[in-house]
Design a protein around this nucleic acid. Structure first.
Lengths: 220, 220
DNA sequence: TCTTTATCTTACAGTTTTGTAATATTCCCC
DNA sequence: GGGGAATATTACAAAACTGTAAGATAAAGA
């Protein structure tokens, strides 16, 4: 369930939005007092922010600019401006979509779902069987345990994950591993695959990598 | 300079778009014959795709769906449909924005620039001083040479890069490195920083990491 | 079924990575 | 400017990583 933060000071509009989103199955957080701060948003750690461009004190564009310094959370701007150009300008500040008031509930929900889907598309590349892949740390974790992969294992797993369900040839893997400039024993890859499999098995991911003889490997 | 692929079969519209985009400083690629295929787009390797939703043979939504199986390249759909809902539905297929015909040139350019900016925001996190950081491979490359970092070096560099220009405390770094469950010699971090610095220096990035005594480190 | 070829496993050794300790240097604060 | 804490450097040894080789399986084709 995705959490949506609503940055809106008009209580009537706010409660309308809240009801709409809760009924659509979202978790909703909103500003607690009548001044919005970036800290409030960051603390709530939402999956998406719905922000009125006209907020008391600071305007939405400023908030957005400040938010963008530390976060990439998707933001949809709610604007009452008539000019299309103004809307696009607000997007150039880093918003991901915008919608004009008065908004059509169905369209708002569709836009929210589109933005969330677009983002999960970018991020889901880093997950496998519900586990999180942390490329910078070279680990896979399922919340409880963490599997540490070596550099070679990471490269192989990364290649396989990028094309999960599809065949990755041995050549592709060897190029990714050794850049082909130094030709290594053809078996080196086999050994590395074997080691990765052993680790994945031990971690509970049995038979994650399937061999397609004469073709390559597939991450199931 | 960003490369934009135009998937449009109407030659009049196509040449109009082409002129507009080239004048705006973009590099333009387009379909060569009158059937568009996903392969054509992938081969051109564009930074953004501008696609008419009504294409001969296959419709734009199908192309988009197929494209999305192997690529995350941003796509703007050009649609002539009147209903806002239809537009949003096309977005739910994985488009990143849409625009209705007849389009306003200024708005089209603004949208293109917004989408490109949004994407570079997601991706630029992985670059430093014009060099590309490849977390999966554990390397930094400037096109010519490649610097191979060890796991520890990668973790430290990753943390610093994520907050480039801001102070990262020693505690944060130690948590990232060792998760605090095993308390290590406080000096272990210092040594690892020292090693990372040596490598960066050797690679030509002199004084990339500044010490802020009693506060932490900053990646310049 | 038999042969051939692709892939797998295991053990080993060279190399790299990494934490420790001892010592040196830097910089804050009085 | 000097004492002292924070940070750096260096050398070393243990641990982890990785390619090689030799032999074991497994699958495809005849």
């Amino acid at each position: 369930m995705s959490k949506i933060f609503i940055a809106e000071d008009d209580t009537a509009i706010l409660s309308g939005l809240k009801e709409l989103l809760v009924n659509a199955g979202y978790e909703v957080a909103c500003i607690t007092d009548f001044s919005i701060s970036v800290k409030q948003i960051l603390d709530a750690d939402p999956d998406l922010v719905l922000m009125d461009i006209n907020l008391p004190g600071m305007n939405g564009e400023q908030i957005l600019q400040e938010l963008r310094r530390t976060s990439n959370v998707p933001v949809i701007m709610v604007t009452s401006r008539a000019s299309e150009t103004d809307e696009v300008i607000s997007m150039s500040y880093g918003a991901d979509d915008y919608i004009t008031k008065p908004y059509n509930p169905t369209i708002l929900l569709l836009r929210i779902s589109a933005v969330l889907k677009r983002f999960s598309r970018v991020e889901e590349k880093n997950s496998y069987r519900g586990m999180q892949l942390n490329t910078a740390r070279g680990t896979i974790s399922d919340g409880d345990h963490e599997l540490v992969l070596t550099k070679n294992e990471m490269i192989i797993f990364g290649q396989l994950l990028e094309k999960q369900g599809e065949i990755v040839t041995r050549d592709e893997l060897m190029t990714a591993l050794w850049d082909n400039d130094e030709y290594l024993n053809d078996n080196a890859l086999t050994v590395n695959i074997s080691r990765l499999r052993a680790k994945l098995d031990e971690f509970g991911c049995d038979n994650a990598i399937e061999t397609r003889k004469k073709q390559g490997y597939v991450l199931i």
